[in-house]
Design a protein around this nucleic acid. Sequence first.
DNA 1: TCCTAGCCTGGACTTTGTCCAAGTCAAGAA
DNA 2: TTCTTGACTTGGACAAAGTCCAGGCTAGGA
Lengths: 161, 161
Amino acid sequence: MESECRCVLSTDSFEARSPAVTLTGMSDLLERLRGRGWRLTAQRRVVAEVLDGDHVHLTADEVHARAIERLPEISRATVYNTLGEMVSIGEIIEVATDGRAKRYDPNAHRPHQHLVCSGCGTIRDVRPQGDPLAALPPAERFGFAVTAAEVTYRGLCPDCS
Amino acid sequence: MESECRCVLSTDSFEARSPAVTLTGMSDLLERLRGRGWRLTAQRRVVAEVLDGDHVHLTADEVHARAIERLPEISRATVYNTLGEMVSIGEIIEVATDGRAKRYDPNAHRPHQHLVCSGCGTIRDVRPQGDPLAALPPAERFGFAVTAAEVTYRGLCPDCS
DNA sequence: TCCTAGCCTGGACTTTGTCCAAGTCAAGAA
DNA sequence: TTCTTGACTTGGACAAAGTCCAGGCTAGGA
């Protein structure tokens, strides 16, 4: 279901490794965090590493479980705090596709929507054509200042259908 | 967090409709439930009554609170069970707009989307133009059999902006 | 009126998320 | 390099939302 990320490197090796495509995004993230005056702790580094990749939509608990593999003493509270902070500064996106646990999407700097499998829950990032906001006529806005539209497409993935 | 917002007048005043319309919808629902072989208990009747109306998006707890006013001994478990059953047979819709408690929307037989105030949480039913599904090109479907698209518009309501 | 499958109840339990006091440490200053 | 300090982390308690279950109740058919 969840895309298994093969980039399981140690915390230390992380910033020293070659600039592979997936890593660029992460270095950018860590640099941006430092630029905001964040202290770069091992915990924050690990949370950022765990969230690296495309089509990554982990719950806080999943992030914690993967973080523990690299940094066994990291606490649940720290994972929640770090995720919350990253969301509040717009570095990652909170996704609520099922009314259960929130999921966290590191792909915050490229506008996209989500395609969810009704069978297994797999989520893919997708880019529909046009601007979904444009489909809402003024008469249907009830005086709201509408600024965003989130679309969740649903269906069965190849494995479930 | 729930609406301090005065733009949510009473449910009834909104579309200036006649009371008859409302009641018809409810009778229909109860009739449909009976038609499915449901035993019509006082508890189910009360849950259906509480959910009646336009732009109604209550949490399970809110449904329970209102149900208790009419039937003090109704239990939380019964409310959850009844809501779950109504959702599973398609008579009401589950809405997850904020990653907190699910909300329940009785307007299941008219296709619509939701407009949510980022300030106070108020939710309105809206009808965008066109079919949002059509905006997702085959190349972006990853082999999924896509069957539905849920759109959540966000912005500030007149009172919050 | 009686019977019984289906429904309801209260409470225990799980999952998800928040809060806090006390200890730890990253990074700038000396 | 060492020191200092305020930001960060920890573990545990707590809260909110939802699920499960044994036992009692009842709608509706016989």
